[in-house]
Simulated assay, not measured.
Amino acid sequence: MSVIVLESVTKRYESGAETVVALDAVDFHADRGEMVSIIGPSGSGKSTMLNMIGLLDTPTSGTVRIDDRVVSDFSEADLTEERRSGIGFVFQDFHLLPMLTAVENVELPSMWDTSVDRRDRAVDLLRRVGLGDRLTHTPDELSGGQRQRVAIARALINEPDIVLADEPTGNLDRDTGATILDELTRFTDEEDVAVVSVTHDEQLVEYADRVVELIDGVIQG
């Protein structure tokens, strides 16, 4: 069963007298253990599609399902909890808090759940990405590639079903980008998560199990 499914999802924005169709009857799915890359030119609807998958926006029409549950049936509390525990995010600009150490940044998404202590998992994840000797370093003491590894560990802290990666190699050189993609690929298998990436980077496409091309809000092919 697919962990995330979009069925005929359309998103329209009203801009004065003009209607902008960001997504037009999009069908999409991603399975656990699969890396899917969404590609397309600027303005093609990639970010809107990622927001739909990440439950950050709602469709004008169509259906979004998470584990065969219809998202439109979720309460606000359900949506918040699903985003917190079921979905991890990796961004181009890392989005680490500068005053926190690496391990504290990784723990951050779990700090609102007082029923569980995630410190051991945070340490384990950082060790698995080769940062066992950087646990107490702040972001300004880490390279760009190391910061992105921290971001990947943070995305996995709550054992999500889906990891969304928005241009995860955009600020990295090619060799460092390849290292990051190796890490994402490994965690896709080890954690059995669905990784959905939005990218302009052909290097990331090479690592994907499946590539989806989006042009003018329409999936090609």
Rank of each mutant, 00 (worst) to 15 (best):
F91G: 03
V106W: 14
D216H: 05
K11P: 14
L100T: 04
E141A: 10
E81A: 03
A25V: 12
L50Q: 07
D117Q: 01
L55E: 11
R84K: 15
T60D: 09
R186T: 12
L172I: 11
E183C: 14
L55M: 15
P98R: 03
E34H: 05
R32T: 01
R134V: 04
S115T: 07
L108N: 15
R69E: 15
V36D: 09
R210L: 05
R119I: 10
H29K: 10
I39T: 02
A17G: 11
R149D: 08
K11G: 14
E190Y: 00
A17L: 13
I38D: 06
Y207F: 08
V20P: 06
T138K: 14
G40C: 07
I53F: 04
A208H: 04
S37Q: 11
D175R: 10
A17S: 13
D68F: 01
R154E: 01
L56G: 06
L184S: 07
L97F: 15
L126T: 01
G88V: 11
K11M: 13
V70S: 11
R149K: 13
G145S: 04
I39E: 02
S42T: 00
A25S: 14
D120S: 14
R134H: 06
V196N: 00
D31V: 08
T169K: 01
S15E: 14
Q148W: 01
T199F: 03
A208E: 02
T63P: 00
S2C: 14
D57A: 07
A194Y: 02
L164K: 08
S197H: 15
H29C: 05
T176D: 07
N158P: 12
D78K: 07
T48H: 06
V150S: 08
L100Q: 06
R65N: 06
R118K: 06
L55D: 08
L125W: 07
A194W: 01
V71L: 08
S15H: 13
R12L: 14
D24I: 06
I66V: 11
V26L: 09
T101D: 00
E191M: 12
V196K: 02
I180M: 08
T101H: 00
G54R: 02
V36W: 06
V196T: 01
I87T: 14
V196D: 03
A17R: 14
D27H: 05
L6H: 09
T136C: 12
N171F: 15
T114S: 02
S44M: 10
V116A: 03
I87M: 15
I215C: 15
A22C: 09
S115A: 12
E191K: 11
P109Y: 01
R12I: 10
F89N: 12
F94Y: 15
L172K: 08
V103T: 01
T176N: 10
M111S: 10
L204M: 14
T58N: 03
S143K: 11
V64K: 01
D133E: 14
V150T: 05
L135R: 07
N51D: 12
G62D: 02
F94D: 04
D209Y: 05
D27L: 04
D209N: 13
R32P: 15
T114E: 00
V205N: 15
L172P: 10
D24E: 09
D31H: 06
E34S: 07
V26M: 08
H137V: 00
A153N: 05
I180H: 10
N158K: 11
E183I: 11
R127F: 02
L79K: 08
G62H: 04
T101Y: 05
T199A: 02
K11W: 11
I162W: 07
A30P: 02
V3N: 05
Q220A: 11
E7G: 13
E183K: 07
